[in-house]
Design a protein around this nucleic acid. Structure first.
Lengths: 223, 223
DNA sequence: AATAATAGTGAGTACTCACTCACCATTAAA
DNA sequence: TTTAATGGTGAGTGAGTACTCACTATTATT
């Protein structure tokens, strides 16, 4: 319903002062909705035009190809979803505050990403589906993950390991468990079983709790 | 390379003594490979025919529609992947052996599903991709999960909770964490980063270890 | 007021798609 | 040997497909 969220992302990421005309916005809205529902490959440009209340030619005035339309939609999602996973803001906070612990960090990340996911279900669906088939999307994802997310995450985990708060797994493993658990929760919550009646507060707390038990120093058994 | 695994599944599940002719087998092999690579919607029947070394008409001699071909391929995967997740054999073992604990069960399940995933990467890719768009697949999955997997899993978890081995989360949450962690590992291992150099033994052990720490009674903090 | 740039149009184009069908080949039953 | 059933063929079909282009409408610049 609240499509503005999508479009603001486009504008910001689309380079400087890119202002969308009403019809351009309609095209993006329509494309997002149908791509999420039926998938990119089985969505026709005529269908998008029809839903957007626009002539088919108008789509190609703004996007050279159907694929360019997809990329325009998907690329900003990668940045917006992945980067705040470990934004500078958080990391700085961790290293400055002496009281900060991994649990606190987890709580902030999960809350943050929960709200993002809630507002952008269709976009996340498209990203998950189309990542498998388009090398441009894979590339974009790898760039963001390798350059933005992984280094900061790695640093943070080693910080907490040095303080004896986290188990001595390789930091890649801790990153994997953390991301896997959070994504697993969000995907179950918003994509696999969105209609179940969730107690979100309780579920978020349990997820943090589970992660902390799994990753805390002191709970280790052997190797 | 070892395509026989796929085809045996088809035969067994395809009803009684369904014997595939060489050309039929070639069609399935080709379809599985291309579906996994490019996705169902962007795979043409002419492409499948060409790769299988068969006339296009031959496909439609055996499958009324392109979609029927997809369903024939995907349906057995759901059963084969989901059911042994909690096969009777395992569950019986758990209730009979007094020494059995959740860790032992986890170890069996993970080993088992790891080998299955290893042998059936393309089929799992197709299932993950197409589940989102085809209600027949969703239905099939829900049937299997609700009737076969969930009840046994639920029972087992309550059994271990009663014995004080598992944390007192709702059993749905324990199921979710367990499946999420295992699937997260398998998907990372075989689909997202299949080319990284994995130490599979160590990674399997760590995954079990992480899950046990996260779910064991005694590690609880509050709530 | 004249010019130019941008947004929007929709009929048209070349092509691909899933699917059909009349026909041949091989084996099995009568 | 005839009949029937099944497997296999590939040219043909109509319904789309992404994309183009000559054109109009609107706004901004000179």
């Amino acid at each position: 319903m609240d499509e503005k969220d999508y479009l603001n992302q486009m504008i910001e990421a689309g380079g400087k002062d890119a202002e969308l005309t009403p019809k351009q916005a309609k095209i993006l809205e329509a494309a997002i909705e149908i791509f999420a529902e039926r998938g990119y490959a089985s969505t026709s440009t005529s269908e998008i035009a029809k839903k957007a209340g626009v002539a088919e030619g108008t789509i190609f005035r703004h996007y050279k190809t159907k694929k360019e339309l997809l990329i325009t939609i998907v690329k900003p999602v990668i940045t917006k979803f992945a980067v705040p996973f470990f934004a500078t803001h958080f990391v700085n906070q961790v290293f400055n505050e002496k009281t900060a612990d991994y649990e606190e960090l987890l709580r902030k990340i999960i809350r943050n990403r929960f709200e993002f996911a809630q507002k952008n279900v269709p976009l996340i669906k498209i990203l998950l589906q189309e990542m498998a088939f388009h090398t441009e999307i894979q590339q974009s994802y790898q760039d963001v993950f390798k350059k933005e997310v992984f280094p900061r995450f790695d640093e943070t985990i080693k910080h907490f390991q040095a303080r004896g708060q986290l188990v001595n797994y390789p930091s890649e493993a801790i990153i994997r468990f953390t991301i896997t658990t959070i994504l697993g929760f969000l995907i179950t919550r918003f994509i696999v079983m969105p209609k179940a009646d969730w107690n979100d507060e309780a579920e978020i707390n349990r997820t943090i709790h589970f992660l902390m038990n799994g990753l805390s120093k002191g709970n280790e058994e052997r190797l």
